[in-house]
Design a protein around this nucleic acid. Structure first.
Lengths: 135, 135
DNA sequence: CCTTGACCTTCCCATCATTGGAAGGTCTAT
DNA sequence: ATAGACCTTCCAATGATGGGAAGGTCAAGG
């Protein structure tokens, strides 16, 4: 099948398929006489693997490692688990960070009348003036 | 003061100060005869505002709008609140997304022995094979 | 006066993952 | 033969930041 169909069935855009090939994440496929890329079921399987890993937030780098481990029949699951748990930790750190932002913003928004007066605790906070009434 | 000191007291790197100036987020400051940028308290106040907004996850674009509203003495707080609450929503969406990833990964990691056997539910999932024993 | 080192200037490049587009070749169906 | 839907490569942009080169400037000390 052509790159377009491979894209459809894998969920990876044609652009990205070419990009993944260019950076060596996936192997260059066979070509037709007219230089079109040709994909088979195995290649699509790889693309689906990549898609799923990226969807779960693994970086391309991590995906590359996972792909190597997947294709290595003798690999140990320990390494895979390490990558996954490391990624979980990173995600949780990011989540905590975002939650901190949300908490602060909600507090500020709650203090803000949101009316037509020029008074605004949100801007006051951004400007560095302490928000009084720490409700 | 020079850009280095302005950077120290505002927490914005010199690189970023120049960048913010180049994209028009902040105004070009005065220059000495030898072409050094000169910052005063007002400029530092702006830099702090920008720093705080960025820390709270506002994009440069949003920060620019907030900065305009801050400097507009007659602004209404309604617009500020809209931007803030919109940002909160975006953050919460992002958080939910990350939490979904974490949930899936934790499930997979839980099912994974992490031992030296080549068996690995994490890879199986990535490969598209259903994880059995949906424990 | 001269040197040293810490500062400053501009300019270009790299990152990460992805998208967009131009210019041109190919395939399929009418 | 031609239309239009595909494919190819190559180049550029995104957003926010960091790195670094090449060169100018300033203050302190020998």
């Amino acid at each position: 099948m052509n790159i377009g169909e491979a894209s459809n069935v894998s969920g990876v855009s044609a652009k990205m398929i070419r990009y993944y090939e260019s950076i060596g994440l996936i192997r260059p496929p066979l070509r037709t006489d007219s230089n079109y890329r040709v994909y088979g079921d195995d290649e699509v399987h790889v693309l689906r693997f990549v898609k799923r890993a990226r969807t779960l937030g693994f970086s391309v780098e991590e995906t590359s490692t996972l792909l190597g481990l997947w294709q290595d029949k003798s690999r140990a699951s320990a390494e895979v688990k390490d990558i996954a748990t490391g990624h979980i930790t990173a995600l949780e750190t990011k989540i905590a960070e975002l939650q901190g932002m949300v908490k602060t913003l909600k507090h500020l928004a709650h203090c803000c009348g949101g009316d037509n007066r020029p008074d605004c605790p949100i801007l006051d906070d951004l400007a560095g003036e302490p928000t009084p009434k720490g409700h």
